[in-house]
Design a protein around this nucleic acid. Sequence first.
DNA 1: GCGACACCCTAACGAACGTTCGGTAGCTCG
DNA 2: CGAGCTACCGAACGTTCGTTAGGGTGTCGC
Lengths: 214, 214
Amino acid sequence: MSVSTSQVKLRVLPSGRTRILDEAAKLFLSGGYGDTSLRDIASAVGIQPASIYHHFHSKEELFTEILRIGVEHTTRAFDEVTETLATTLRSLDPQETLLAHIEAHLIALFEHGPYTAANIVAFPVAPEAVKSAVVPIRDQYEQRWDTLLQSLATSGLLDPNLDVRMARRILLGSINSTIEWFTPKQYSRKKKDAQSVNDLANVMTTLVWKGIAR
Amino acid sequence: MSVSTSQVKLRVLPSGRTRILDEAAKLFLSGGYGDTSLRDIASAVGIQPASIYHHFHSKEELFTEILRIGVEHTTRAFDEVTETLATTLRSLDPQETLLAHIEAHLIALFEHGPYTAANIVAFPVAPEAVKSAVVPIRDQYEQRWDTLLQSLATSGLLDPNLDVRMARRILLGSINSTIEWFTPKQYSRKKKDAQSVNDLANVMTTLVWKGIAR
DNA sequence: GCGACACCCTAACGAACGTTCGGTAGCTCG
DNA sequence: CGAGCTACCGAACGTTCGTTAGGGTGTCGC
């Protein structure tokens, strides 16, 4: 008890800038860019609208930063999986590789919630200036998927008629759109159709790999 | 030449209300609900903002109507395919059935452009009142897909481990997300990767049916 | 030829918006 | 102790927003 309470709080609780980002991400996620005002964000954080300008130059910069963080989380998750798989000695089943990356993407989507999810629902209707700022780092992430799928293709593991870039877009599109209907087990209230992110990843991978046909 | 020019124009050109809907749909599609003002819409149509209120009670009603029309187009397209397939005497290949419905959905998405597309990109960040007004008719459409897939499942044509509702959600999610990257041949400027909606439907169907694995 | 109605106008309302400015409390460090 | 910095506040700015009120003009049925 010798450590002062204020010091502990400062370490544990998010600082001002992070608090703004967290609350803003939630609001942008549910209301988009135009319908979320800086006054909404400020009141969610418990500060005055003017105080936001101490941390960000403009509303657009704040929004761009949120999208950037979201992509960053996803990219890092992808790279960690790649690294883990590389250091694993056992031979790599291609379907397991796919599963690991799909799961990582889904975890980023549902676990780091608002930041990543905002990239799905709020990006398409974002101001042009925001879009063009985020597109380059989104491209970097998509490039990783292209590389992964291409390596599977050159190993002869994919349908040779498949357009890899097209397959990647459809694949990521289907994964991302789960944000609109899936609720992970731990957050769901009704136990009925509740499943874990892991379950979802398994279903998605099987579906992508083998299709829906018997 | 006995028919007066004005009469012909009145039949061919969209009337005031339709013009408003058309322009508004385009703007809502690219900017979402909050960032699209009635003044933007009015100036695109070439009228005054106040004139919109002669046709719609509020901005929300206008937006809701656009989303409603979009779903209506998609639903009608689905039903027309069902009817056509029913009156066709030859036996129905399940994959062809799927292809026909996927193609119909994609045509509605890219041909009736803004109305249907707005349901994909602008709906998730729409005001709650708008969402709850559109959800019931969206459900009706999704119900048709559930029925279709369920009939395939009970015929033993689908993977028995498959959750039909989940598969439908993933399937529709992947189809809908094409709106963010696909540009049909006739509209595309660069000939390189240009393909028709029909081509896209074929790729999607094969992918959904058999997966990406060789 | 005249009321009724559809359609669009000008003008303006109050509210909400992003943003700016000057100031202040508290902490750090010489 | 006091200069300097971080984090925030209160008040206000000019602008834009959705919406309303009231008026004008053309067309159509009677």
